[in-house]
Computed example of a mutant assay.
Amino acid sequence: MKQALICVSFGTTVPSARQEIEAVEQALSAAAPERVMVRAFTSGMIRRVLAGRGQPVPSLPEALESLRRDGVEDVFVQPTHFLCGVEYDKLRAEALSAASGFARLRVGRPLLASTEDLRAVAAMVADRFPAETGRAVVLMGHGSTHFANVVYPAIQTIFELAGRPDIRVGTVEGWPTLEEVRETLRSMKVERVHLAPLMLVAGDHALNDMAGEGPDSWKTLLEQDGYAVTATLEGLGRREEIQALYAAHLTQDLN
Rank of each mutant, 00 (worst) to 15 (best):
V125W: 00
V125K: 06
V125P: 02
V125G: 04
V125N: 00
V125S: 07
A126G: 12
A126Q: 14
A126K: 14
D127C: 14
D127V: 09
R128A: 08
R128Q: 11
F129C: 09
P130T: 05
P130K: 08
P130N: 05
A131V: 03
E132F: 08
E132V: 13
E132N: 08
E132R: 15
E132D: 08
T133K: 14
T133R: 14
G134Q: 03
G134A: 02
G134W: 08
G134E: 05
R135V: 03
R135W: 03
A136R: 08
A136C: 03
A136E: 08
A136H: 06
V137A: 04
V137Q: 10
V137E: 07
V138D: 07
V138R: 11
L139S: 02
L139G: 00
L139F: 12
L139W: 07
M140V: 09
M140G: 03
M140F: 06
G141M: 06
G141A: 15
G141E: 00
G141D: 07
H142Y: 02
H142M: 11
H142T: 04
H142E: 13
H142K: 06
H142V: 10
G143A: 14
G143Q: 10
G143C: 10
S144Q: 12
T145M: 14
T145P: 12
H146I: 10
H146D: 12
F147L: 13
F147W: 13
A148H: 03
A148N: 07
A148E: 05
A148M: 03
N149Y: 05
N149G: 01
V150G: 00
V150Y: 10
V150W: 07
V150L: 04
V151S: 05
V151W: 09
V151G: 04
Y152G: 08
Y152H: 11
Y152W: 09
Y152V: 10
A154M: 11
A154N: 07
A154K: 14
I155A: 02
I155W: 01
I155Y: 01
Q156N: 09
Q156G: 09
Q156F: 12
T157I: 13
T157E: 14
T157F: 01
T157V: 14
T157W: 08
I158L: 11
I158T: 09
I158H: 07
E160F: 06
E160D: 15
E160G: 12
E160P: 12
E160I: 10
L161M: 13
L161R: 14
L161Q: 15
L161E: 15
L161H: 15
L161P: 04
L161G: 10
A162T: 00
A162I: 04
A162M: 04
G163Y: 08
G163R: 01
G163A: 06
R164Q: 04
R164W: 11
P165K: 01
P165G: 00
P165I: 05
D166I: 03
D166C: 01
D166G: 02
I167H: 05
I167V: 13
I167D: 10
I167A: 12
R168V: 15
